[in-house]
Design a protein around this nucleic acid. Structure first.
Length: 570
RNA sequence: CGGGGCGUAGCUCAGCUUGGCUAGAGCGCGUGCCUUGGGAGCACGAAGUCGCAGGUUCAAAUCCUGCCGCCCCGACCA
């Protein structure tokens, strides 16, 4: 491709819409242009990289026997009502109406559609397992689009779904996908980590996320410094060694006038937060009241609260608390009307001895709280804390650290959640109708591209790997008015292209520095520089963008030198 | 949706506090000269409903009201 005839415009200045480096470079290097909040034009050079990534994805999935298809973006509401997600998905589901006022959604994900397809086509266990996928534009009316392609309202996703007649079969495919995803991200030159994940509103049991490690990542990961354990903080928990003492002090009512928060109490009683048990009170849409108890120094993990309650909830109302005999600011399990509130206790509470908790009496707390003596009978132990740095790993007891990551892939074992709600059955060997056991697998395709930039760049621009680079080689012609030099470069361009190299030929009428800056900014892996001065001495210059090394080679040694560099770049 | 900020040429921004002259600069774009190995220089030129609507005023980019759009921080997710 001759640059002078191509559609590619770079920017010298940083556009103000961009904050993080990968977003800035995507815009400056001419890959994307914003059309509306979270909605982008993919420019020609972006499309090249996108197609390369899609090729990698297809190759790795095809190896595992997955089959590609393509579903619509405009989806009838009917199917979403069947699964119940029409009501549960919330405002992210972009709803539209047609001219007859019939309801549709723009597809944010396609569990319902694929389930519908498979239930109408497949009726025997003999056709299972099945692993179907598509690479397609997804639409989600995100609360807050952010960071360019990182969280866009329209983006490209690879979504795959598998159907099985047994959990063993699902596990096999799940592991296949785990492997395929690992291979894909490796080929993209990404440094990533696979972490245990919460399943969110997709639902299901097991789930892993593929996280590209980056400080600008939106996700927090609890990572064990000693073993392989790594989990999204939404899912992560730490292990507490329970403490039981024989010599217990009596439970004692103490006056704590106007001291409601843990901070105030800490100061007032001069005790560390670990001595307190705090209560978090919510009620669900049916008005059922829940009390969550946790040690004073821990935060409550709302994702886990969602999982426990399983339906929408809000902070408890004054009326509900009153009915359960709970006093706001002085709340605790002791003295509450246990018929009116469900109590869940975090394992961190098992470390509290001689602790402080609310007395359900205005201006009073209890002192001398011991979990094994003072908690009511019918409580449930749960992990609802947000892990902190230096907490213990639940597997090996080593130290946890909190790191940041960009979620580029997510795999789930769905089980029968969709097949049951949508009556998707097959006939098993025994002649009985059974719901399909399902898995689902996603890759944020456009997000992967930005994550690759976030992880591979320097102060001059992007550093692409061979596999994702929009062009492998930037052939830079200087002195284009010198006929001899220009002819040489023209011929070299033809030769390189004939040999199958992807080359952009910078034949623009611009100064050297200008072209070098563009080459670095866009980040083509190899720059071949043809200039009059060097050529007169029979020399060609080759620059490796990844190492920043430049070499001058004799014209006759050129192909060998190019080969060497190709061997040595990622 | 809550909190913070922004909206003036294709891009980055100044001007607004304290209303008043023909609305400016740099980059980019066009023409010419000059230059030619790290985003050169000079000259000339084109390019603006000052986000939109209303109001106050002799007079509004500037003050007031409403709306729209965009970015950042929180809850959702590939």
């Amino acid at each position: 491709m001759r640059w002078s005839k191509y559609f590619l415009y770079t920017l010298k200045e940083t556009p103000k819409e961009a904050e993080i480096i990968s977003h800035i470079y995507l815009i400056r290097a001419g890959f994307i242009r914003k059309l509306a909040s979270g909605i982008y034009n993919y420019m020609p050079i972006f499309l090249r990289t996108l197609k390369k990534l899609e090729k990698i994805i297809r190759e790795e999935l095809d190896k595992k026997g997955a089959i590609e298809l393509l579903m619509p973006v405009v989806l009838p509401a009917e199917l979403w009502k069947e699964s119940g997600r029409w009501y549960k998905y919330g405002k992210e589901l972009w709803r539209i109406k047609d001219r007859k006022d019939a309801e549709f959604a723009l597809g944010p994900t396609h569990e319902e559609i694929i389930t519908h397809i498979v239930r109408t086509e497949v009726s025997s266990y003999r056709d299972l397992p099945l692993n179907l996928y598509q690479i397609q534009t997804k639409v989600r009316d995100e609360i807050r689009p952010r960071f360019g392609l990182m969280r866009a309202r329209e983006f490209i996703m690879k979504d795959g779904y598998s159907f099985h007649s047994s959990w063993e079969s699902l596990n096999e495919t799940y592991n296949d996908m785990y492997e395929a995803y690992s291979n894909i991200f490796k080929r993209c030159g990404l440094y990533f980590k696979v972490v245990e994940a919460d399943t969110g509103n997709i639902g299901g049991s097991d789930s892993h996320e593929f996280m590209v490690l980056a400080d600008t990542g939106e996700d927090k990961i609890a990572n064990c410094k000693s073993c392989d354990y790594a989990a999204n903080v939404e899912k992560a928990y730490t292990k507490f060694n329970e403490v039981i003492v024989e010599d217990k002090k009596p439970l004692e009512l103490i006056e704590t006038p106007d001291k409601k928060s843990i901070d105030e109490l800490e100061e007032f009683l001069n005790l560390p937060p670990e001595k307190f048990m705090k209560a978090f009170l919510v009620e669900d849409e049916e008005g059922i009241l829940y009390m969550f108890l946790i040690r004073g120094d821990y935060e409550i993990n709302e994702a886990k609260i969602n999982n426990i309650i399983g339906k929408p909830w809000k902070m408890a109302t004054f009326e509900a608390l009153k009915e359960a005999n709970i006093i706001e600011g002085y709340a605790g399990p002791i003295g509450a009307n246990l018929d009116k509130v469900k109590i869940f206790v975090d394992y961190s509470v098992r470390t509290i001895v001689d602790g402080i908790t609310g007395a359900n009496k205005q201006n009073y707390h209890y002192k001398g709280f011991y979990w094994d003596r003072d908690l009511p009978e019918n409580i449930e132990w749960v992990n609802i804390h947000v892990v902190k740095p230096a907490d213990k790993c639940p597997i090996c007891g080593g130290e946890l650290e909190i790191i940041r990551g960009i979620e580029v892939g997510h795999i789930f074992k769905l089980g029968t959640k969709y097949s049951e709600s949508m009556k998707a059955y097959y006939k098993d060997k025994d002649g009985k109708e059974k719901p399909f056991i399902m898995g689902c697998y996603g890759i944020g395709v456009t997000r992967v591209i930005q994550a690759a930039i976030e992880q591979n760049h320097d102060e001059n621009g992007i550093i692409w790997t061979k596999e994702l680079a929009p062009f492998l080689i930037d052939l830079i012609l200087l002195d284009l008015k010198d006929e001899e030099t220009r002819n040489f470069a023209d011929n070299l361009y033809k030769e390189l292209t004939d040999k199958g190299f992807e080359v952009i030929y910078d034949d623009r009428d611009a100064r050297a520095g200008f072209k070098f800056k563009d080459a670095d900014l866009i980040g083509f892996p190899i720059h071949i520089i043809i200039g009059k001065k060097n050529l007169k001495q029979g020399l060609i210059e080759i620059k490796n963008r990844q190492t920043q090394e430049r070499v001058k080679v004799k014209v006759e040694d050129f192909w060998k030198a190019l080969e060497d560099i190709l061997q040595n770049i990622r």
